[in-house]
Simulated assay, not measured.
Amino acid sequence: MSAIFRSALRRQMAVRLTAAGIPGAELDARLLLAHALREDAGALLSDAPVAEEERLRAEALLARRLAGEPVARILGEREFWSLPFLLSPETLVPRPDTETVVEAALAHIGDRQAQLSVLDLGTGSGAILAALLVELPKATGVGVDRSEGAAITARDNLARLGLGARVLVFSGHWAAALAGPFDLVVSNPPYIPSGDIGGLDVEVRRHDPLAALDGGTEGLDAYAAIAADLPRLLKTGGIAVLELGIGQEAAVTGLLRHAGLTVPHPARRDLGGIPRALACVRP
């Protein structure tokens, strides 16, 4: 078999991804080939022959992508808030929309040098908590996840980012084991109605953990549990920011107000214009 060069193999991979209707084919091809070559994606700027074992690795990765596995799952890592996060089967892939939660939380904090306490419920990979601790250098944090595997992944990510000494991560059912109070509580809870799970994109339906997606019949089960706990978890004047699913702002606002919390502003919108991060305050 004649040698194939990196540029040619990358083009072939992109063509196959495009033919399969996968968006972002050029970027996916570059990332997958770089991973197969065990090099940084920038190394592909240097054209060189691809060894047979490298070609076979690239083919195997391409097959996974063509079958619907997200690139982040294949690479085992995803960037969030310009920080790298390792993934595991028990964690969601952090998404750009969720950065809206970080933005909303920071917008409500007056002094970023204050010694704040932060709680992340359903921490997953630890992405939200890590982003906040980076932006709040004197804050300490607690992360909780129902999945022990997710808690281990979050703990590892926070340690890799040099944040391990400022955080405690453990497995538990929401805030059942916590007394508080905290200055800031954040959460990206499961909010997909159970009946809608089957209609999700294959990348989500087959590869994200069900427990991190399924929010019960109306998608509100986790919000109800969190809202009930927030009055004891938050300090007076403390803030909570919850990620929302599409069309859930009114219902979640009602749950928070029923719990005695103040919702001072409409939800912060993500880049797509969808109300995504709802803040509330303990009066």
Rank of each mutant, 00 (worst) to 15 (best):
W81H: 14
W81I: 03
S82A: 15
S82I: 08
S82Q: 14
S82H: 14
S82L: 12
S82Y: 11
L83N: 08
L83D: 10
P84N: 07
L86N: 12
L86I: 01
L86E: 15
L86T: 13
L87S: 05
S88I: 04
S88Y: 10
S88F: 10
P89T: 12
E90R: 14
E90V: 06
E90D: 15
E90P: 07
E90G: 09
T91L: 05
T91W: 03
L92E: 01
L92K: 03
V93T: 15
V93W: 04
V93P: 07
P94E: 06
P94A: 08
P94W: 04
P94G: 02
R95L: 09
R95G: 11
R95S: 12
R95D: 03
R95T: 11
P96L: 13
P96G: 05
P96K: 07
D97N: 11
D97P: 09
E99S: 06
E99M: 09
T100N: 08
T100E: 10
V101R: 06
V101D: 01
V101C: 05
V101M: 07
V102G: 01
V102Q: 03
V102N: 00
V102D: 02
A104D: 01
A105N: 07
A105Q: 07
A105T: 14
A105V: 13
L106N: 04
A107D: 13
A107Q: 11
A107S: 15
A107Y: 03
H108Y: 10
H108R: 15
H108D: 09
I109H: 06
I109Q: 05
G110L: 14
G110S: 14
G110E: 15
G110W: 10
D111M: 07
D111H: 09
D111S: 11
D111V: 05
R112P: 11
R112C: 05
Q113H: 09
Q113W: 06
Q113E: 15
A114P: 04
Q115E: 15
Q115F: 08
Q115W: 11
Q115N: 10
Q115M: 09
L116F: 12
S117T: 14
V118Q: 02
V118S: 01
V118I: 14
V118P: 00
L119F: 07
L119D: 03
L119R: 02
D120N: 04
D120L: 03
L121C: 05
L121P: 01
G122L: 08
G122C: 09
T123K: 01
T123E: 02
T123C: 15
G124F: 06
S125L: 01
S125P: 01
S125Q: 03
A127M: 02
A127E: 00
I128L: 14
I128S: 02
L129H: 09
L129Y: 06
L129M: 07
A130F: 02
A131Y: 03
L132E: 04
L133W: 00
L133G: 02
L133P: 02
L133T: 04
V134M: 13
V134H: 11
E135T: 00
E135M: 00
E135Y: 00
L136F: 11
L136Y: 10
P137A: 10
K138L: 14
K138Q: 15
T140G: 10
T140H: 14
T140Y: 07
T140M: 07
T140W: 09
G141M: 01
V142C: 00
V142F: 02
V142S: 00
